[in-house]
Amino acid sequence: MENRTTMAVGLRSLGVQGGDVLMVHASLKKIGPVIGGARAIVGALRDAVAPDGTLIGYASWDRSPYGETLNGAQLDAETRRNWPPFRPDTANVYCGFGLLNQFLADTPGALRSAHPDASMVALGPLAHELIEPHRLGQAFGPGSPLERFVTRNGKVLLLGAPLDAVTVLHYAEAIADIPGKRRVTYEMPILGPNGETAWERAEDFDSNGILDCFAIDGAMDAVETIARAYVALGRHREGQVANAHCYLLDAQDIVSFGVSYLEQRFARRISTPAKGP
């Protein structure tokens, strides 16, 4: 059975190095049994980037009212009044993006960004720099933790997670110069200065489908489409850690590829007037 030490050795063999800024997407089920459980896995990740590396993960929030307020949808008055405000230090992580990040968020010293629905959790010397600021309307694009993660030469680790989990590609979607990008509105309950709940409205890119063609039920979204095309080039590291099939991706490279992928296929085409006789 795997343990913290053997997991760290496996991560180093995959290409994780000391000092890395590493964004982790993990499937505990795919990893399989590890002595010490999820806490040991977090420990192995910390060991792999030691002594001065930083871990980051996509946390979101298990009480995010994104769907309930999407594009003008309304909560009834009582539900709205009783909805808890987002508190970065105590809010539970949304388990739909993997259970490991809850353990990362619970690790002493971990910091959580202030955007309720798109909150990131980070642990390490660059944690504060990565997570702040994180304002509504800047979930994944310019000004977000993802932008700073890319700037810091981050790496993306899929530890048994699928290729549709490469969250940093939402940054590529946001900065790609293409027409017709889908936008959404939603509301979030923010903790006010006196402990009250203040509902704030936000507008942002639609991370569930940046273009209409990527928002079709049952079809691949842009993240998975781009990630699959990128992996086919072989510019990444790939291997097994514990029982999990893993990918290690350079964040700047896959974002640059993602922007080019979208712009080459969907950029506005300028028509050329027909020449006369």
Rank of each mutant, 00 (worst) to 15 (best):
residue 1 M to A: 14
residue 1 M to C: 03
residue 1 M to I: 13
residue 2 E to R: 08
residue 3 N to R: 13
residue 6 T to R: 08
residue 7 M to T: 09
residue 7 M to F: 07
residue 8 A to N: 04
residue 9 V to S: 12
residue 9 V to E: 13
residue 9 V to M: 08
residue 12 R to I: 00
residue 21 V to C: 12
residue 21 V to H: 05
residue 21 V to A: 03
residue 22 L to K: 08
residue 22 L to Y: 10
residue 30 K to G: 00
residue 33 P to Y: 03
residue 33 P to H: 06
residue 33 P to M: 10
residue 36 G to M: 03
residue 42 V to F: 06
residue 43 G to E: 06
residue 44 A to F: 08
residue 44 A to G: 08
residue 45 L to A: 13
residue 45 L to G: 11
residue 49 V to N: 01
residue 56 I to S: 07
residue 59 A to F: 03
residue 61 W to D: 02
residue 61 W to K: 02
residue 62 D to W: 01
residue 62 D to I: 03
residue 64 S to H: 03
residue 69 T to A: 05
residue 71 N to G: 07
residue 77 A to E: 15
residue 84 P to E: 09
residue 84 P to N: 08
residue 85 P to R: 00
residue 86 F to E: 02
residue 87 R to D: 15
residue 93 V to R: 11
residue 98 G to P: 04
residue 99 L to I: 00
residue 99 L to M: 07
residue 100 L to H: 13
residue 104 L to R: 05
residue 105 A to K: 15
residue 109 G to M: 08
residue 109 G to E: 14
residue 111 L to C: 01
residue 111 L to W: 04
residue 114 A to R: 10
residue 117 D to V: 00
residue 120 M to F: 14
residue 120 M to Q: 14
residue 121 V to W: 03
residue 123 L to N: 10
residue 126 L to A: 14
residue 127 A to C: 08
residue 127 A to Y: 09
residue 128 H to Q: 12
residue 133 P to A: 11
residue 136 L to D: 01
residue 138 Q to R: 07
residue 138 Q to V: 00
residue 139 A to E: 11
residue 141 G to W: 08
residue 144 S to I: 02
residue 147 E to T: 12
residue 148 R to V: 13
residue 150 V to G: 01
residue 154 G to P: 08
residue 155 K to M: 13
residue 156 V to K: 06
residue 159 L to F: 09
residue 159 L to I: 15
residue 159 L to V: 15
residue 161 A to P: 03
residue 164 D to M: 07
residue 165 A to W: 12
residue 169 L to P: 04
residue 170 H to E: 04
residue 174 A to P: 02
residue 176 A to Y: 03
residue 176 A to M: 06
residue 176 A to I: 13
residue 178 I to R: 02
residue 180 G to P: 01
residue 183 R to V: 03
residue 183 R to E: 05
residue 185 T to D: 02
residue 188 M to R: 05
residue 188 M to E: 13
residue 188 M to Y: 01
residue 189 P to E: 03
residue 192 G to L: 13
residue 198 A to Q: 02
residue 205 F to C: 01
residue 205 F to L: 11
residue 212 D to I: 09
residue 212 D to M: 06
residue 212 D to S: 05
residue 213 C to S: 06
residue 213 C to F: 06
residue 214 F to L: 04
residue 215 A to G: 02
residue 217 D to Y: 00
residue 217 D to I: 01
residue 217 D to L: 06
residue 218 G to S: 10
residue 221 D to G: 15
residue 223 V to R: 03
residue 223 V to L: 11
residue 226 I to N: 10
residue 230 Y to R: 01
residue 231 V to L: 14
residue 231 V to G: 11
residue 235 R to N: 15
residue 236 H to S: 10
residue 237 R to E: 09
residue 240 Q to L: 07
residue 240 Q to N: 11
residue 240 Q to K: 12
residue 241 V to R: 08
residue 243 N to H: 13
residue 246 C to R: 11
residue 247 Y to M: 09
residue 255 V to M: 14
residue 257 F to T: 12
residue 259 V to T: 15
residue 265 R to T: 00
residue 269 R to Y: 12
residue 274 A to Y: 02
